[in-house]
């Protein structure tokens, strides 16, 4: 029972809690864009926290875990942005009360 083990376990638990909140948002949010925000940002933070916890538990795997974290940090925003752009251009239905400044600008200056 070392100090690194305790810190790593707590980091892994917090990462799992963020993943749980992401899944809950994925089920409970009303429309696509809110679900995208919950399912992408919170999941990235949860995965990075879990990788940091694993690096505290086993310090000899730290280089490989850092590589995984870098790849996730590079690729996940790209896929999220491409998906949001495709959904906005194809006219996905939005929840009631959404203020869509981009569509207003498109109507104003075609």
């Amino acid at each position: 029972m070392t100090i690194g083990g305790i810190i790593g376990g707590i980091l892994m638990l917090s990462g799992a809690a963020f993943l749980f909140l992401a899944g809950l948002g994925l089920v409970r949010m009303p429309d696509l864009f809110n679900r995208l925000q919950a399912g992408t940002k919170a999941t990235t933070l949860g995965t990075l926290l879990t990788l940091a916890g694993a690096a505290c538990l086993r310090p000899d795997w730290a280089v490989k875990l850092l590589l995984i974290g870098l790849f996730i940090l590079f690729t996940n925003p790209i896929s999220s942005q491409v998906l949001a752009r495709a959904a906005h251009r194809t006219g996905t239905p939005q929840a009631a009360g959404t203020v869509d400044r981009l569509a207003e600008d498109r109507e104003k200056r075609p």
Partner: peptide, 29 residues
Amino acid sequence: IAFLFALYRFLKGPTAADRVVAFDTMTLV
């Protein structure tokens, strides 16, 4: 439990983009 939530959204999701969001979440989980 988070994986089960994402699976529910994948199986139910009303539009195609909802299922793609669930797919992305499931890969990270």
